[in-house]
Design a protein around this nucleic acid. Structure first.
Lengths: 158, 158
DNA sequence: TTCATTATTGCATAAGTAGGCAAAAAAGGC
DNA sequence: GCCTTTTTTGCCTACTTATGCAATAATGAA
């Protein structure tokens, strides 16, 4: 079914051209274009499209499609923070330990947080240039490393 | 009480430095900084700060302070759309009528919508290069024009 | 100071959004 | 085609955010 792909395009267009400030309103506009779905589906569509909700500067918010650059930007930013501080990495079944250059543990931990890995429960940065990354139950260190590599192409263990 | 002003600064800082993805979480971080308020207050603070909620590109959203430029940007954009199409303006007690250059009525109406004037209930763009702007009860055409001038410095009647 | 006006906040609740789960639809494999 | 696997969706509900209203605090005028 290519319905979804089509709908996503239409949603993009609608959001660019109209001031849409709720999924309810989007729902209506979509109806006008011949698409009939529920709010739950829209919620998923918007997430998929990475649509944000921004202030119009005057007591209101509206949905907004992020530009390609914006997306790369924020991702690159985190990746740089990570790479800038990274020294080595090791892990066991439930925990990943990253060693960093002196003074970089906070920024590395923050970068990991910001990258929003599904596999991660939380991070803490120690006093001694070490970051602990706690993994979600059922996720192994290997899983995380794999995911990290996917997101940070220039990353090499050790 | 300057508590609010202070708090707003702290909120800005927190949002810049942490991945905050809910007001609940912000509430906690604020407590750590010694501020104790309710979620309702945060909702208002965020609106006041024009904080947006953006996709991190990976199944998540986080709050984000808009840069000065971003705010100007979007505002300038609307203003340009308006000025580009604007020819003349007239009004009575409850309605403002804008004449536009040929083919610009849609974009002018949209610009007015996007600028989110509190005074406006709604707009419609006619076939013949005219935009009607319906005003909220209790708001006069004069009020609106005043507000418009405040927002669009280069705007001159007629 | 005292009173009136405006700004802030909490409370309660409405409005809006997201996610689990199961069903239905689509896509592949043979 | 037929069966298995993966996607997509709706329904229902939980979670998150916004707002009307009334109370309280701050500000300012006289």
């Amino acid at each position: 079914m290519k319905e979804r792909a089509e709908r996503l395009k239409v949603i993009k267009a609608i959001i660019k051209e109209n001031r849409v400030d709720s999924q309810e309103k989007l729902l209506q506009l979509l109806e006008d274009h011949g698409y009939s779905v529920t709010q739950a589906t829209l919620s998923r569509d918007l997430k998929y499209l990475k649509v944000g909700k921004l202030s119009d500067g005057h007591s209101g918010y509206y949905y907004s499609i992020p530009s390609e650059e914006e997306r790369r930007e924020s991702e690159r930013h985190y990746i740089q923070d990570f790479l800038r501080g990274y020294v080595s990495i090791d892990w066991n079944q439930s925990l990943v330990v990253v060693r960093t250059f002196s003074g970089h543990s906070d920024s590395v931990a923050l970068a990991i947080d910001n990258m929003g890995f599904d596999e991660v429960i939380g991070t803490i940065s120690g006093r001694d240039n070490v970051v602990f990354i706690a993994l979600k139950k059922g996720v192994s260190g290997d899983d995380f490393i794999r995911s990290l590599k996917a997101r940070v192409p220039e990353f090499e263990e050790e």
